[in-house]
Amino acid sequence: MTEPPPWPGTPPAHGAVVLREFTEADVRLALELGEDPYVPLIGSLPAKPTRREAEDWVRRQQSRHAEGRGFPFVIDVRGTGVGTIGLWLRKLSEGIGIVGYSVSPAHRRRGFASDALKAITGFAWTVPGVERIELYIEPWNRGSIRAAEKAGYRNAGLLPAHQEIGGTARDMLLYSRIA
Rank of each mutant, 00 (worst) to 15 (best):
A13D: 09
E21I: 04
R20F: 09
R28H: 10
V82A: 09
S44P: 01
A25V: 10
F73G: 05
F71Q: 03
E35C: 03
I120G: 01
W88K: 01
R108W: 11
L89A: 04
L45N: 05
L89D: 09
W88I: 08
Y38M: 08
P46L: 10
L41Q: 10
A30E: 13
L41P: 01
W88G: 09
R59W: 05
W88T: 11
R90E: 15
E32F: 01
R90L: 15
L89G: 08
G95A: 08
G81W: 00
G79W: 10
S63K: 09
T80C: 14
I75R: 01
I85T: 11
G83I: 06
R108L: 11
P37Q: 06
P37M: 02
I75L: 06
A54H: 07
V18N: 01
E35Q: 10
P11N: 03
A116C: 02
G100Y: 11
R60Q: 15
R110P: 02
A119H: 11
P12M: 07
G83V: 05
E67A: 13
Y38T: 09
L19H: 05
A66N: 00
L29T: 06
T126R: 09
G122N: 15
E53G: 12
I42F: 10
G15E: 06
D76F: 00
A113E: 06
R28Q: 13
E55G: 03
S63P: 01
R109Q: 15
W88R: 02
A113Y: 02
P49M: 03
W125R: 12
T126I: 06
G97Y: 02
G86F: 08
V18L: 10
V17I: 06
I120N: 07
A106D: 13
Y101E: 08
V27S: 08
T80A: 15
H65N: 04
A119M: 11
I96Y: 13
L19K: 04
T84W: 01
Q61G: 10
R51I: 13
I98T: 14
R28T: 15
K118A: 12
A16T: 09
W57E: 05
A16Y: 00
A25S: 12
A106K: 09
A66I: 03
K91G: 14
V103E: 10
G15L: 02
